[in-house]
């Protein structure tokens, strides 16, 4: 049995002090196996964004342990954390968060640059990643010359270019129209079919329905954990669009 990609034990996050204390997470336990495609759903204020930020090593939990690919992230120093974010995690934001006035391919290259990959190799891998999300011909465009869906696909390419153990997506379709949502979800389906581990949060049911496993979060607690399709099969929606098949 391989070790899980994600292993979260009794994770708590408390904001504020005294009267104003907010328990964003009240002891979450979660294990995600390699190759799984997990959607976390919950209404706003359910703590799903907090959970996502902690899983992405962008924020630190108040208590509990968090093993990422067997590494205890809560005990890492600044330098190791940077390394973990770079090598183990690919993070996709709701607001895309591309670096402005910088071309798509340069954005995708950025994590590789921080990983110390040589420029030629970097360019090759960035182009390959852009090809996966179907934007190879837009490589020279800057973010403001791309549509929302295209920007988000560039962000997906950036997240997967380092071949991380885990892809995390924080409401990746939250800012997108139906068509762009479809484009981005197709990319996720293919990535899942290719064996990538994906965890995303959403409040749109049609996004949650396509995942292999659906978790519902209410007030900082997991209230439901449903397997919708087996881990080692392609997800339900895969190849329905077909245009980005590898």
């Amino acid at each position: 049995m391989t070790r899980p990609v994600l292993d979260v034990r009794d994770l708590k996050k408390i904001y504020g002090q005294g009267e104003a204390t907010v328990h964003a997470l009240r002891g979450v336990n979660l294990t995600v196996e390699r190759g799984d495609y997990v959607a976390i759903m919950g209404s706003s204020g359910s703590g799903k964004s907090t959970l996502m930020n902690i899983l992405g090593a962008l924020d630190i939990p108040s208590s509990g342990t968090y093993l990422l690919d067997g590494v205890d992230v809560s005990r890492l120093g600044d330098r190791q954390l940077a390394l973990a974010r770079n090598r183990l995690i690919g993070f996709i934001f709701q607001a895309f968060n591309l670096i402005p006035r910088t071309s798509a391919v340069a954005n995708v290259e950025l994590p590789l640059a921080y990983a110390g990959v040589k420029p030629k190799e970097r360019r090759r891998r960035a182009m390959a990643a852009l090809d996966i999300v179907g934007l190879a011909e837009r490589a020279k465009h800057e973010p403001n010359q791309l549509s929302g869906g295209q920007q988000q696909r560039v962000a997906v390419a950036r997240a997967l270019v380092t071949e991380p153990a885990l892809l995390l997506a924080d409401e990746p379709t939250g800012n997108l129209d139906t068509r762009s949502t479809e484009d981005v979800l197709n990319v996720f389906d293919q990535l899942s079919a290719a064996g990538r581990t994906i965890v995303l949060i959403t409040h749109e049911p049609e996004v949650g329905d396509r995942a292999k496993r659906l978790i519902r979060l209410v007030d900082g607690d997991i209230v439901a954990d449903v397997r919708q399709s087996p881990i080692h099969r392609p997800p339900v929606g895969a190849f329905s669009g077909g245009r980005h098949a590898q």
Binding site: L58, L83, R85, R87, I99, L110, A115, R158
Partner: peptide
């Protein structure tokens, strides 16, 4: 600062 946040999220060490 936001850009710095993005760069950190992508794994840029503080020193860089």
């Amino acid at each position: 600062t936001r850009e710095i946040g993005i760069r950190k999220a992508l794994g840029a060490p503080r020193r860089v």
